[in-house]
């Protein structure tokens, strides 16, 4: 009840401000009209819809692979015919610390390397400019910005501008950030990603299996449809996208899409749970 009152009060204030400033808040409108769905009803981890500013935090720079993998997994779902490209932006001098996206690795991850455009810029100002410019483009699905040392330029205003641009242009922006200290930002969602020991790989017990991350949603809980659920998931990355990790040992562990990465054509095992005779 209280929540509803507060929302009504905020909506009233917004209309007042709109009247004063003679402008509208497009992305706010959109947020109200449609609930964000992150956890779909069939207990799958569905990627976030387009037009959001995400912050993807990982504690250390050495986890850059996991953070990039998670952002890329989210971004892949936004690719389409009218939006064929993902832009990756990085400071040229930080490439040696976090690594450059690698074409064959992208293939292996499940993304066509041609879809990823790499931008290597000289400073944070150019980085933010490029991200804003790309967010306004109707053909970019997502922008992944890798940034270790943002300096003082990336402040609330900058992230607000990015959020507005993303909301208007319907391209998602992912800021990959490192460290434990959070600062004020206008991002819609803030994730914390950490790698987790992978499951056993097929046919080789000693080999690392499919990527597995622990994902925690720190900000933007209101956009998750499942309000009662926890904001912490363990995710596997499979060929079919994100797969929620169930408690190991339960019967759900073997359910479709939860297994290790599949190679080649999709086997019939995916049809598990459906009647095969009728």
């Amino acid at each position: 009840m209280q929540v509803v009152d507060r929302r009504q009060a905020i909506a009233r204030l917004r209309t007042q401000i709109e009247g004063i400033e003679k402008r509208s808040f497009p992305e706010v409108r959109q947020a109200q009209s449609r609930p964000y769905i992150i956890r779909a009803p069939d207990e799958k981890f569905a990627p976030a819809p387009a037009g959001l500013l995400h912050e993807v935090w990982s504690d250390e720079v050495r986890n850059s692979g996991a953070a990039f993998g998670f952002a890329l997994g989210q971004a892949r779902a936004l690719l389409g015919r009218s939006r064929p490209a993902i832009l990756f932006l990085q400071l040229a001098h930080e490439a040696q610390q976090t690594g450059l996206p690698y074409g064959p690795g992208l293939c292996h991850f499940g993304l066509c390397p041609e879809a990823l455009i790499i931008g290597r810029v000289r400073n944070v100002t150019e980085l933010l400019w490029a991200a804003e410019e790309a967010a306004g483009c109707k053909a970019v699905a997502a922008i992944i910005v890798d940034i270790i040392h943002p300096g003082k330029i990336l402040d609330f205003t900058a992230s607000r501008r990015l959020a507005m641009r993303a909301g208007r242009g319907k391209a998602s922006v992912f800021l990959l950030r490192y460290g434990r200290e959070r600062e004020a930002g206008a991002s819609h969602l803030r994730w914390r990603v950490a790698p987790v020991s992978s499951m056993e790989a097929l046919f080789d017990a000693r080999a690392p299996g499919c990527p597995r991350w622990q994902v925690c949603l720190e900000k933007g809980q209101g956009m998750v449809s499942d309000m009662l659920g926890q904001m912490r998931w363990v995710l596997n990355w499979t060929e079919n996208g994100f797969a929620l990790e169930q408690a190991v040992g339960t019967d759900k562990a073997g359910k479709a899409g939860v297994g290790p990465a599949l190679s080649g054509p999709v086997p019939t095992a995916l049809g598990y749970g459906l009647s095969e005779t009728a």
Binding site: S64, G65, F68, G69, L72, A95, Q96, T98, G99, L100, P101, Y102, P104, G105, L106, C107, H108, F109
Partner: peptide, 14 residues
């Protein structure tokens, strides 16, 4: 040549 075994997502330039 593209059908390579597992490759990393990010490669260090050096």
């Amino acid at each position: 040549a593209l059908a390579l075994p597992a490759r990393p997502l990010r490669l260090l330039p050096v």
